[in-house]
């Protein structure tokens, strides 16, 4: 991990203003933000450790635990809500046996909700990694999950 981290961090020596892009790059590389990585970011940028965590924990994008291979984001936008997003979420939770914010034991899926992915006309929808599954019904949930079950 150290080598991968220092490769990401090396252009950012002393760059306090670049904290968010740094956190994004480190998360891209490591999949999440381990404590040691945040310490290293603090050292590289010259920011206090507490500040690094303060910023990282403010933004929804950053994770402090490893994620599953696939990230399932159930959209909770208004359009999705009035078209039954809650039931999609419940069904997904039932199918995976985890609740929102958790990762399955086999590290295959992480289940999250997102404020809105902007596909409101296709509500209710779910984003799996970068793909959007549109106009879902609870019955379709197992099917869209099994599509990724390689």
């Amino acid at each position: 991990m150290e080598e991968r981290l220092s490769a990401v961090l090396s252009p950012y020596e002393g760059r306090k203003d670049a904290l968010i892009p740094i956190l994004q790059k480190v998360q891209d590389e490591l999949g999440y933000l381990p404590d040691d990585a945040m310490l290293e970011i603090a050292k590289t940028t010259g920011l206090p450790e507490s500040r690094v965590y303060a910023v990282a924990s403010f933004y929804a994008q950053f994770r402090f635990t490893p994620r599953g291979k696939h990230t399932i984001m159930v959209c909770r936008g208004t359009a999705c809500h009035v078209r039954g997003a809650e039931r999609i979420l419940e069904e997904t939770e039932r199918s995976l046996g985890i609740v929102e914010g958790e990762t399955t034991e086999d590290q295959k899926y992480t289940l999250e909700t997102v404020a809105c992915i902007g596909c409101c006309a296709l509500a209710p929808c779910v984003m799996i990694d970068e793909d959007v599954e549109a106009k879902l019904t609870p019955q379709m949930v197992p099917e869209i999950l099994s599509g990724r079950n390689e």
């Binding site: 909770r76 936008g77 208004t78 359009a79 809500h81 809105c116 902007g118 596909c119 409101c120």
Partner: peptide, 8 residues
């Protein structure tokens, strides 16, 4: 930073 749920 279009964050309103229901707007795209």
């Amino acid at each position: 930073d279009e964050g309103d749920p229901g707007a795209f």
